[in-house]
């Protein structure tokens, strides 16, 4: 069955089309909203077509890790809610959720967007811990890009809760923001046959041969990569996919107005 769908998708792509009428390099309509849940210190909701993701940021004060006594911490977690996709099951995160969380995490961490030194309160004793939770409401494909975008917007939206040195008062939010040096944006390029495309539907995702998530900073530096899918890529494939992604990242930045 998948083989036939794949053949059909490839033939359509060869004509420069997709099932839903988009071009290969065209995203579905994107809408973003910040401050969507008031109990989180920061939050954002990103919709790409029918894909709908909520990201919330909670903060806590903890003892820094012994090997980085002067740094606060930053952690990304994904809950692939069975509410959002009939294939998702209850229970601890599976490999799909873990990979998604780690790819989003890598983009933010490796770009050095978050100044973890500035999260330290008292060396080797107390530091802020930023916990990002990604919760899809509806998965209609491309959770990678939707989650990455929502994460960075939620981090921008975050305001520290009040802290008196002993206890956090979650009811009182200060004006203090997370120190963000720059804003990384991620785009995942999919390869189906010899065709490249972005923002796949579930169907396109299922028949794709390979994918490459590229995360880049404003100045065009690549800060994280992740190849997925079962088919190997040649160096020229990778070059083409990175060029494709960098072009799309620029468009995305412009369209969403992601700014520092």
């Amino acid at each position: 069955m998948n083989k036939e769908i794949k053949r059909h998708i490839e033939e359509t792509l060869a004509k420069g089309m997709r099932f839903d009428g988009r071009k290969a390099d065209e995203y579905r309509p994107i809408s973003v909203q910040v401050g969507v849940t008031k109990n989180a210190e920061g939050s954002a909701r990103v919709k790409i077509g029918e894909t709908d993701v909520i990201v919330g940021v909670k903060m806590a004060v903890e003892k820094p890790y012994p090997d980085t006594p002067e740094d606060g911490t930053f952690a990304v977690n994904v809950e692939l809610l069975p509410l959002s996709n009939p294939e998702f099951e209850t229970g601890p995160p599976g490999i799909q959720a873990i990979e998604l969380a780690r790819v989003v995490d890598r983009g933010v961490r490796e770009s050095k967007a978050v100044d973890t030194k500035a999260l330290c309160i008292e060396k080797a004793e107390k530091a802020w811990c930023i916990m990002v939770d990604i919760c899809p409401i509806n998965d209609a494909g491309n959770l990678f890009d939707a989650s990455s975008l929502a994460t960075i917007l939620a981090l921008q939206d975050t305001r520290f809760p009040a802290f008196d040195g002993i206890e956090i008062d979650y009811k009182t939010r200060t004006e203090k923001k997370i120190p963000l040096h720059l804003i990384p944006v991620a785009v995942t390029v999919y390869k189906i046959g010899k065709h490249l495309l972005v923002d796949p539907t579930i169907e396109e995702d299922q028949v794709s041969d390979a994918r490459l998530t590229v995360c880049a900073t404003e100045d065009g530096h690549i800060c994280a990569l992740q190849k997925g899918g079962n088919t190997p890529l040649t160096l020229s494939d990778i070059e083409a996919m990175i060029d494709y992604a960098l072009g799309q990242i620029k468009v995305l930045r412009h369209n969403i107005g992601v700014k520092k």
Binding site: T37, N39, K58
Partner: peptide, 19 residues
């Protein structure tokens, strides 16, 4: 039926995911 609070939905600390 499966009742679940998102980790950031409570008024205090983060709610640990999982039942």
């Amino acid at each position: 039926c499966h009742y679940n609070m998102m980790p950031f939905s409570g008024s205090g600390e983060r709610v640990r995911p999982g039942g």
